[in-house]
Amino acid sequence: MSETLLELKQLSLSYGGVHALEDISLRLPAGGITGLIGPNGAGKTSLFNVITGFSRPSRGEVHYAGQRIDGLPVPQIARQGIARTFQNLRVFPGMTVFDNVSIGALSQQRFGWRALWSRQQHSAQAVSAATWAALRRTGLDGLAFELAANLSYGKRKYLEIARALALQPGLLILDEPAAGLNDSETAALADFLGQLSQEGLSLLLVEHDLSLVKKICNHVLVLSSGRLLAEGSPEQVMRDPAVITSYLGSEEA
């Protein structure tokens, strides 16, 4: 296996009395798509929040690309190369599609004040190039000057991904990317995520749709009541008796 991209060491998180995460240790290799599954309230979003700095772990460490990142402020973790989307779709509705995506491009590329303060498309060519690249990558370039609020739900999901891609991350974290999409949209998304992975981007995603997980993920983590229940290839994990009783059994997959 290739080198470790993300490593969690004995990670715990509690909200007051609730133990959202308990003693989680794992390594994520660079490249590939890792699926994170588990029943509602298992702590999947909490795990993402700890990795991206939105929550501070009560114990344990997070290492990304060889550097310890737990305790760092959210923007700094993002600039180190971890981009995320949110479970409850969050775009900037009052801004155009282009402007939405430019936010991702701004922080990654440290152009300094001159470029930041320049008019769009003039001297900050690198910002606009990165923005257009992310727009084309997600097929949103034709809608660049629409207000984000006017986009369909499916397009807004791509917009959120485009904004994250503009950051040029090393690791892209997606919280239920297929939620709310119909079958054909889900299939298209699966193809798209597969392509991103082939281009060398590492993905970590939460997904309830197990057939999607089987189709695109090469590694699966199972979380239950804040604990890491199992990990391995999709086939391995879904045959695991502990997983079947705790998760698959209850959801009838």
Binding site: T52, V74, A78, R84, F86, R90, P93, I103, L167
Partner: peptide, 13 residues
């Protein structure tokens, strides 16, 4: 103005 947390997640303080 639109979403402060999202701005942070995009690497801006």
């Amino acid at each position: 103005r639109e979403d402060e947390q999202c701005v942070a997640a995009m690497g801006l303080d």
